[in-house]
Design a protein around this nucleic acid. Structure first.
Ligand SMILES: [Mn+2]
Ligand SMILES: [Mn+2]
Ligand SMILES: [Mn+2]
Ligand SMILES: [Mn+2]
Lengths: 153, 153
DNA sequence: TACAACATGTAGCCTTGGCTAAACTTTGAC
DNA sequence: GTCAAAGTTTAGCCAAGGCTACATGTTGTA
């Protein structure tokens, strides 16, 4: 480790979290990230199905700001994950599991936006930030958010 | 688009954000994600340098819960980005730019954790969730957080 | 001083999530 | 009914961020 370094700096050491603890936290973050995209897709597909009756690759792509080819590939991943089905040239549909996820994700999205707005964050910033934040909010934290909002009446 | 579908569902349409608006939001989220890892690395390297005088690949890897090979590759990316330097077998060091980023990131991390705790989120959940949330909090939202915390005294 | 233990670096593999280009279907306007 | 426009699919490329395996370097201790 470098005993010299240890002696030189060790005494003034700040308290870092234990290695294992920190590793677990970062691991959670990584796993949240790997599901974030799928969550946004099912939420969006649910919205499109609700509002227009179909969720076509091009529409999805435009709303996400990616190419249609990217959307098609991600829809494949949704299928592999058992969250969606797709009929050729008819767009995407959600499985039971996909609908359940979409519902949870939509509720969570709303809650995060509402909380941010309650704290005085302007609407557009709240919506934009929530799109990323939502995927990293645990059940525990979500409950605290709901509690706080309830306390405001 | 399918006129039948449009007629069947269009009337009960829910109000989605405009396509461009939604695309911009998702784009911001994507770009935040691409910098998230670099932010965590510079923050961790700064912490390790402070507490032990050196930031070696193996230590970084253990704290992140990844293999040392992964850490080495990411340190290369930090170098490419002008955030860090590394002397063979002496670990990583931050450039001026890296130190500046680390400072900003540390302040933001603190603020997010403090806010979550102020809302009643238990410490460990607050720390774990903050590790992901922090990367998606805009300056605007950060100010609102600070404001709220100040209002609590 | 030698050497075993440990740290480092490198190579090669995989998945995810972007992209463009080109071929193919569907659809709607005439 | 035709056919061009619009949408879909597929293929092939790239970078990021994981991994394991292996070769090489350093270092504390016997
Ligand atoms: Mn989102
Ligand atoms: Mn969302
Ligand atoms: Mn983080
Ligand atoms: Mn952090």
């Amino acid at each position: 480790m470098g005993e010299a370094a240890k002696r030189r700096h060790g005494d003034a050491a700040e308290k870092l979290p234990a290695e294992g603890t920190q590793a677990r936290r970062f691991g959670k973050t990584r796993s949240a990230q790997s599901t974030a995209l799928l969550e946004d897709y099912v939420e969006l597909i649910a919205d499109l199905l609700m509002s227009s009756g179909e969720a076509r690759p091009t529409d999805i792509a435009r709303r996400l700001g990616v190419s249609h080819a990217t959307a098609v590939k991600t829809i494949s991943r949704l299928k592999r994950a058992g969250l969606a089905t797709a009929r050729p040239y008819r767009g995407a549909f959600l499985t039971e599991k996909g609908r359940a996820l979409a519902d949870r994700v939509r509720v969570r999205h709303r809650l995060v936006v509402d909380l941010l707005r309650a704290l005085g964050v302007p609407t557009e910033a709240a919506e934009a930030d929530a799109e990323g934040i939502e995927h990293h909010v645990s059940e525990t934290t979500l409950k605290a958010f709901a509690q706080y909002l309830k306390s405001l009446g």
